[in-house]
Design a protein around this nucleic acid. Structure first.
Lengths: 212, 212
DNA sequence: GATTTATTGAGACGACCGGTCTATATTCCT
DNA sequence: AGGAATATAGACCGGTCGTCTCAATAAATC
């Protein structure tokens, strides 16, 4: 399942008009993302990532200063990748605000199903691991959650403005509530290899909105 | 911070009327619990546990077949320890059912505060790690969650019977919702070294009950 | 008091870890 | 042409991992 056939892996300085100058680097990041969402940071060895993409160790330490630096870059990458996904849904003017949230949930559910519920959320994974991680990750992870929360809060405010939820609701707090629980749902979905936790949480959250 | 002063650590077969025949074993379990709730399974080395209680490696493999067997025992231990805590609160007839849940929440919050929010829930930690854990853990963890969920559902049913929550509520599903989110809250509390996520989730959950 | 049994103390083992280092190949720049 | 820059290649280092072995010791049993 690993080791794609070594395509185009030449030594030496690559040609400058480097269409895919960063190809190797990006392959490493992509493979790292896959590995870390499945198994977390501590349990994933660099050699394993290297083997998966057929790249020698020398290259890794050419592109990244250390495993820690590699991890930091993955957090940034995943954070923005996910933020883009959120923004795509939350700013979809063709849907009512709450429907946008439902669309995101469906998207995320499909994302987990696609990999047999083996891959979770990188940010949640590393958050859980913090006890054994470089302290520098903490602020970074915190920042990503904050960002996601702000985006959701904006969408909830929009829902408030069109009267889908009560005007007494504290949207920031509600957004915090959602992400807290959603990470728990992802965790459980991975544990049970099942979409049920995602569904139960999303359903419960949305039902609470309608009522509260 | 480790290495208590070697009290009573004699060689040879210990006396039979073994007040503390299992002392060493229990010290290992206790230290293991502390380590695993902080750092998880994969990141915790056996040597580290051994060092903390001042026991040599030979003893570990005398009491436990492997690290995996040790982990399995810890899951069982933590599962029943926590189930007892739940039962103590949920069957407290001096409080109304919802107040019992609030009491449990307060208890758990205090538990996390006591260790500076460094220790999480063992079951949640290992659940997140499953991607890198022996597959045998999965069912065990699942079983513990199921047990907790049943206990909470019973308390919710009691709340329903005294009219604290709507009779239309599906208590089993609601209990599932709670644990899904609560694990997320514990994760975030650890990440942020703060009680806020626990409070936000508990408050949101209870508010939803009142409204829904 | 000899034998058996339970437990400890100490450490060897091989696999693997993250990280470093040197060598080599290719292209750019002058 | 020749050095500088970029990148691949992989051996290697010290450390840690989980596991296993084995002698030493002392209580229990006979």
């Amino acid at each position: 399942m690993d080791l794609q056939p070594q395509i185009n892996r030449r030594r030496g300085r690559p040609p400058k008009q480097g269409e895919r100058l960063l190809e190797t680097r990006q392959m490493l990041l992509r493979a790292g993302l896959e590995a870390l969402t499945e198994k977390g940071f501590s349990s994933t060895g660099i050699d394993e990532i290297l083997r998966r993409v057929g790249v020698p160790k020398g290259s890794f330490y050419h592109y990244f200063e250390s495993k820690e630096a590699f991890g930091a870059e993955l957090i940034k990458l995943y954070g923005t990748y996910f933020a883009r996904k959120l923004e795509r849904h939350f700013s979809d003017q063709s849907l009512a605000p709450l429907a946008r949230i439902r669309a995101f949930v469906a998207d995320a559910q499909a994302g987990m199903a696609k990999y047999g519920y083996r891959r979770g959320c990188l940010i949640g994974n590393l958050g859980q691991e913090m006890g054994a991680l470089p302290e520098s990750f903490r602020m970074q992870l915190h920042g990503v959650f904050d960002d996601w929360q702000v985006r959701l809060a904006r969408c909830l405010t929009a829902a408030q403005q069109v009267g889908e939820i009560s005007s007494r609701t504290d949207c920031a707090k509600l957004a915090a509530f959602f992400w807290i629980g959603w990470e728990g749902a992802v965790l459980r979905a991975k544990l049970e290899s099942s979409p049920a936790p995602l569904e139960i949480f999303a359903e419960g959250f949305l039902a609470g909105l309608a009522a509260g």
